[in-house]
Design a protein around this nucleic acid. Sequence first.
RNA 1: GGUGCGGUGGCCGAGCGGCUGAAGGCGCUCGACUUGAAAUCGAGUAAACCCGAAAGGGUUUCGUGGGUUCGAAUCCCACCCGCACCGCCA
Length: 471
Amino acid sequence: MIDLKALRENPDRFKLGAQRKGVSVDIDRVIELDSHIRSLTTERETLKAEQNRLAKESGPKIGQLMGKLKAASGDERAAIEAEVNELRSKPAKLKTQVSVFEEQLALLEPELRDLLLLIPLPPDDDVPVGTSADDNVELSTWAPEGYDLSKSFEANRGFAPKTHIELIESLGLVDFERGVKVAGTRSYVLTGDGMRLHQAILRYAFDRMVDQHGFTPMSVPVLVRGEAMEGTGFFPAGRDQTYHIEESKRGAGHDMYLTGTGEVGLMGLHADEILDKADLPLKYVTVSTCFRREAGAAGRDTAGLYRIHQFDKVEQVVICEADEKASRDWHKQMIAIVEDLLQSLGLPYRLLQCCTGDLGVKNADMIDIECFMPGRGDLDDNERPTGAFGETHSASRLYDFQCRRLNMRYRDESEDGKKQTVFCHSLNNTVAASPRILIPILEMYQNEDGSVTIPEALRTYMGGVERLGED
RNA sequence: GGUGCGGUGGCCGAGCGGCUGAAGGCGCUCGACUUGAAAUCGAGUAAACCCGAAAGGGUUUCGUGGGUUCGAAUCCCACCCGCACCGCCA
């Protein structure tokens, strides 16, 4: 949720932001509704104040008169009754007047709310303007000693790489056929060492977050109420991407949704809370199963483990004070954590500055981290892939966009010493999403004989196994 | 699935038609005492929105929505959520 006051003061900033993000939303209508609602509100409140005043004034009088009435009779009685009726009628008149305004407001307020939910957070000025992923900007690359990203995998290693799909098949790590049998397209079953490697990377990443980076480990619901989806900014825009459990159709009180990221559960934890400033920043890590419908991605990445409906992800979330510098610093730190992890695994990667058109409604800034996948990319003359980077991580900086929607605040003192409540800032970043991360691991660690070496860091999580596919 | 109970401020908890934006406690802030701290004592301390340069004023909010009433945290209705016990069960 954006700040309505800020929009009122500077609508152009939000118009430009929406335009740069490629989101079409009628901001002029929002301004019109807002000013209309405010003038109606003022009138209603004036009447209401008068009504309250009268009620306070005439209440005791009515009480007194009613007392007298008991003892009175004849003309005196009639006079008292008339006076009581008079006293009662004034507030009643106001009440009908108030209800006229209330009816009008009841029509306009939901419209404003619905529109507000659609207005994107304007991208920061230092985010490059662009319309699609093609306009994203590479910031840096990293590769382990002895691997030169400017050369092909074959030039580096002396043999042509197999794709992760080929390696998976020959090593028996995944059963796609049976996955599809059980759950349909884009489903899979990790088998044997495939499942073990999947668990190994998740646990390795999770443990590092807790042990080395001091994040608080959490388990969170992946089946959540709509409020959590809306609060985190995934609704209404991302409804299509979300599995919807229509429990209300079965008589339950409300529907449920399967989350596409642990971010939803983690951010939902403190919704509607006023936090203690001393408790910030909150640093949470969770590992959760993620569900994505991948609507609109029909035909893209249909083979292999790249684009699937269900996966597991270690996710980091930071909730910090409302300070741009703090947000920016945490963003860098959270990216550094991932770089450190990837370097410990010896996986080549690059940092990609997402352009405005690739940000989504809730981000001010987003850095994607892409691992190098030798089995991806365009095909060469021999119909073999030439290798390409593939997104494995995404680091978002959201300012107070989510915390406004979630109503997550903390107490602070303003410069003049006054106490106030402030919306927190939030950030999130992938730590490791598997099985997608298995793609670069398998493809980069493959050997000429078709075996795959287990990265050293993961071996303790693999019962000491050093190599898959060894005779 | 059955039965019972309940949802009040940052937290706990009282109130059960007007004097209640809400007792009391905890927490927090400031002050006194103290070499300092603890303890103790005193004062203060809800949120959102609107008007205002500010001082200040107004409206709303006791789960949500509707109703009764001159007036509702308090009465009525519907809904949501939670807890306890029983049944079933990983």
